[in-house]
Design a protein around this nucleic acid. Structure first.
Lengths: 138, 138
DNA sequence: GTAACTGCAAAATATTTGCATCCTT
DNA sequence: AAGGATGCAAATATTTTGCAGTTAC
């Protein structure tokens, strides 16, 4: 397994276990976001389902991955870029879900625009998900 | 039960049943969005859980309500305004989730801005959820 | 009367928790 | 050695499906 994976875990002060390495490695090798089910499917020789739940939770708390909201009861997770820190996400980019291949992609360079809210509303965090057709499915 | 409820159902060519009237009435009386669980809790003398699932599904198909994506595996539903039609939602407004009272509110007058996507990406629909503090929780 | 809707039971899924064991540091 | 992580079993919770009885039109 790559050194990169171990470095990432070390940076987050997480012990370097086999499951964590394999799950994080999968994220690094995957373009686009992964759901719990995706991970279960794609890690051949099984990590326990419960361990996946716990790993995703820890990774999210540590700012290694962030969640992408969805309207179909299936949260997806994607790697955070450098500017995420423990307990403090800055996944301030637009997410794209392809209607055709149903991949979910972080458009890291497309920022969520600031919104003028009505009087009395104070924003903390914005999330934007655009669906349509991705560049590979034209 | 109000005439408004029956009119709405009639307009969508749905038969006017007790469950549908009560669920739709709840939406009309509620500010903000409702999850399946909310509905179950707030309709005192129980409608079957399964009926609630099926009713929400039909309402969504008919353009009476729309879903609001979330990052916690709990879809919320909110009434559509006039411009939603069968199989064709235009809930093109920003949704606000209050961190304090955790209400989800449709900001009907705040439109989701158009986004400039990278080459090759074609948008069909955008969703935006802003969280923070709402005007009642200041 | 007929098609559509509902409730119940049950199946299928998904998520959480407790605990004994194993692994990392 | 000690604390944390994992797997397993089991408890909960959520969603889906089939079907028989009921209701709207």
């Amino acid at each position: 397994m790559q050194t990169e994976v171990r470095e990432l875990l070390k940076k987050s002060r997480l012990s370097i276990t086999d499951s964590r390495q394999r799950i994080l490695d999968l994220f690094l090798r995957t373009e686009g976001a992964l759901s719990h089910a995706d991970i279960e499917k794609r890690i051949a020789d099984g990590i326990d389902r419960v361990t996946i739940y716990r790993t995703l939770q820890v990774f999210e708390e540590k700012g290694i991955i962030h969640t992408i909201p969805s309207a179909d009861n299936s949260i997806k997770y994607a790697l955070c870029k450098e500017d995420c820190a423990e307990g403090h996400h800055h996944d301030n980019h637009v997410h794209f879900v392809c209607d055709s291949c149903s991949k979910t992609i972080c458009l890291d360079h497309v920022h969520v625009p600031d919104i003028k809210l009505p009087k009395g509303f104070y924003p903390r965090e914005s999330n934007m998900v655009v669906s349509g057709v991705c560049s590979e499915c034209l």
